[in-house]
Each structure stands twice: as structure tokens, then as C-alpha cells.
Simulated assay, not measured.
Amino acid sequence: MIVPSPRTWVVGEIVTAAKLNADIRDALNFLLSPPLWELTHSGIIAPASSTQAVMPFDTEIVDRDNGHSTSSNTSRYTSQTAGYYLVSGAVGFVSNGTGKRELTILLNGTTETYPSSIPGLAAGFTGLTTTGRVYLAVGDYVELYVWQNSGGTLNTNTTKGGPRFGGHWISK
């Protein structure tokens, strides 16, 4: 998608249907349906202890700007439209009271943003969420990383909807 730029009209300019469509209709259509994605994973993921693991996503609930692939680099959402995005992620782990759990949004595989952490719970599941505003140029990508130190692999919990990763464009 291309973010429309506001037009400056001049005195005496003739208004045509093409100008109204390009300058008003297209801008309103973009604002009514900006880039938006929500991804999930249908199965269990079992990250190893003390290793940062990228979360794969095999199901697209919505992907308005075609920034995600279910066959290649499934962990990534790659920006097709530059701007600020509100990005969020959620993951739950099965019961295990040892160590802690962390969830982080990574920009272009290196820059950690908006980390979240919580101790492991011996009863019930340990759920983490993270949300933050991230600027994405066209071609930048974000991923969701998890880390846990239970002493062994630890399954994600799928009974509460599975891992989620989403975002939406909020401004230029």
C-alpha cells in the first residue's frame, strides 16, 4: 500500500473525478483499511532452555498488506508500507515452576524492543504479552522471540489460543 499524501489545491484549479478519487477517495480507503496482520501457530513449539527462539507462525488470521508468508521465513512480518506500527505478541507456556519466561519483539533480527518477563508457574500456564510502537521502513521486519530457563525444553500452551503475533499501521 502507498500512504496517500495530502494535496494542496490552488485557486482556479478545475476539480475532476480523477483528482477527487486520487486525493480524497484513495486516502479515505487507506485510512479505512490500513496495513494489519494477526498470525498464530497451530501446534506446540518447544524452545530449549536458555536459548532465544524465534516463534514461527503458520496461520494468517488477517494480513492486509501481504507482509507474511506461511512457507518462507514464517516468523517474520515484513513491512510493505513504511510507518509506525503498534506491534503485539502473546505466548503461553505449560506449567513449570522453574526459572522464568521472556517474550521480546525483534526488529530486523537484532534490535530488541519491548521485552516482557515473568517467573514460571508450577500450576496453570505462564502467559506473556508484549506491545510496543515500532517504526518500519519498507523491507524492515519484526519477529517474536521467546526465552525460558526451566532446565529443559518447555512446550508452548495451545489450549488458550496458541501464540499470537500482530500489528497495525498507525501513522507515517
Rank of each mutant, 00 (worst) to 15 (best):
L128V: 12
T74K: 13
P34E: 06
G99N: 10
I61V: 05
D26S: 14
T153A: 05
A90N: 13
W169H: 08
G167S: 11
T78C: 09
E102G: 15
H68F: 11
Q52W: 13
P115Y: 01
N66C: 04
G152Q: 10
F57D: 03
G109H: 03
L20Q: 12
I105L: 14
F93N: 02
V134D: 14
G152M: 11
T131L: 12
K100L: 11
H41L: 04
W9F: 08
I118S: 13
L136K: 04
F165C: 01
F165T: 11
N108R: 00
V54C: 12
V91Y: 03
T74F: 14
T51L: 09
P56T: 10
V91L: 07
L28F: 11
W9G: 07
A17F: 13
G152F: 15
V94P: 04
M1E: 10
R133G: 15
G12C: 06
G92N: 05
I44Q: 04
N29M: 12
G132E: 11
K160H: 08
P115T: 05
H41N: 07
S171V: 07
I44K: 02
G97S: 00
P163I: 03
W37L: 04
L107H: 02
M55R: 05
S95K: 00
L103I: 12
D140Q: 04
N29D: 15
A46M: 08
R164W: 12
F165D: 03
A122I: 00
V94R: 07
R64V: 14
D23T: 15
K100E: 13
T126D: 00
G97L: 00
S71C: 12
R64S: 07
T74N: 12
T8M: 07
I118Q: 10
E38W: 07
N73A: 08
M55L: 13
G92H: 02
L31I: 08
G161A: 05
L32Y: 14
I170F: 05
T159P: 14
G167T: 00
R64T: 13
L106V: 13
I105Q: 03
A27H: 04
V62I: 05
T81K: 10
D140N: 01
F57T: 05
R76I: 15
E102D: 15
S171A: 10
I105D: 01
S69V: 01
R133W: 09
T70F: 02
M55E: 10
L107M: 03
G166V: 01
G167N: 06
K100V: 14
T129M: 11
S75D: 06
V62H: 04
W147V: 09
A137M: 04
D26G: 06
A48Y: 06
R101L: 09
S75W: 12
